[in-house]
């Protein structure tokens, strides 16, 4: 055996021993604040202003998300893109859970995501008018979905009787522990356009930035979302459920609330071996 071989053997044995000794320590440290590649953030500006001045073409920004399907064959269940919308003063104003089929793409209207904020400060308006939520941040967290057979009945909405994909941004519908509990899942990537100037129509686009956030932030977001979606208001005799952007999920990039806008679907069904019905919560 040459000297070089001996050195290499020693290095190999030493390295392996070091790895065996250090790995549990290092992995334990990782588990303490587990991070999944599931938390992303971007900003929005000039939301609700795409129709200014009145009479000009609507210029809505679009959030586009794709499921990169890194799970491959291990798990072909749909994912949830949990959407949390904040104003610039850090208050969560809306939230919703949007199903994304495996490998699929989702388009969300920013005007739609900001149409029904929960806070009076950014909401005061006449029924059917845009909100005052012009600027803020959008946080997207990809999680597992609840895949369940819904019994027929009006209360189960458009997915009644189908295999429904449910995405609850509060986490309350998920099992509290064990299989199927609410968990961040790495897979989504996203981009959003930014209307730079509603007078010139300049638009830019940036990707959502990974936040390196601990998984333990997810229940914090869920709790905040619970309090946001409990609000509602009556404006000009019309009851609005504020704080939820659920209708935006299946609207394919269209603002479903804009009275003058195109009609937006409230759900869609994926055909194939697994027939899933998707809608937002």
């Amino acid at each position: 055996m040459s000297k070089l071989e001996k050195l290499c053997r020693l290095a190999g044995v030493g390295g392996a021993l070091a790895a065996l000794v250090m790995l549990p320590v290092l992995l334990a440290g990782t588990a303490a604040h587990a991070q999944t590649d599931a938390f992303y953030v971007n900003y929005f500006a000039n939301a609700q202003l795409g129709t200014q001045p009145p009479g000009t073409p609507n210029q809505d920004d679009i959030v586009r998300l794709i499921d990169t399907n890194v799970r491959q064959q291990a798990d072909q269940n749909p994912l949830c893109a949990m959407v949390y919308v904040y104003d610039e003063w850090q208050e969560m104003q809306e939230c919703c859970g949007c199903p994304v089929s495996a490998g699929g793409e989702l388009a969300l209207s920013v005007d739609g995501l900001t149409w029904l904020p929960t806070g009076d400060f950014v909401h005061i308006k006449s029924a059917g008018d845009p909100s005052l939520l012009f600027r803020g941040t959008i946080k997207i967290v990809s999680t597992n979905a609840i895949v369940t057979q819904l019994p027929p009945g009006l209360l189960n909405g458009p997915c009644a009787g189908d295999v429904a994909v449910l995405c609850d941004p509060t986490g309350e519908l998920y099992p509290s522990s064990g299989a199927g509990s609410w968990t961040p899942v790495a897979s989504l990537r996203g981009w959003t356009t930014h209307l730079q100037s509603y007078t010139t129509g300049y638009v830019t686009e940036t990707r959502f930035e990974k936040t390196h956030e601990p998984d333990s932030d997810l229940p914090i977001l869920g709790d905040a979302c619970s309090s946001v979606t409990e609000s509602s208001s009556v404006v000009a005799g019309i009851t609005e459920v504020r704080g939820s952007c659920a209708a935006v999920c299946s609207a394919q990039g269209v603002n479903p609330y804009n009275p003058g806008g195109p009609a937006a679907p409230t759900y869609f069904v994926e055909a194939g071996p697994n027939s899933y019905c998707y809608s937002g919560l």
Binding site: C8, G12, A19, L23, L26, L27, G29
Partner: peptide, 23 residues
Amino acid sequence: EIILAMVPAVLLLAVTVQNARAT
């Protein structure tokens, strides 16, 4: 032997970097 020696070292380095970012 060189490859065998490098495997645990690379493994250790990767986990250390990941851990540094995580914790």
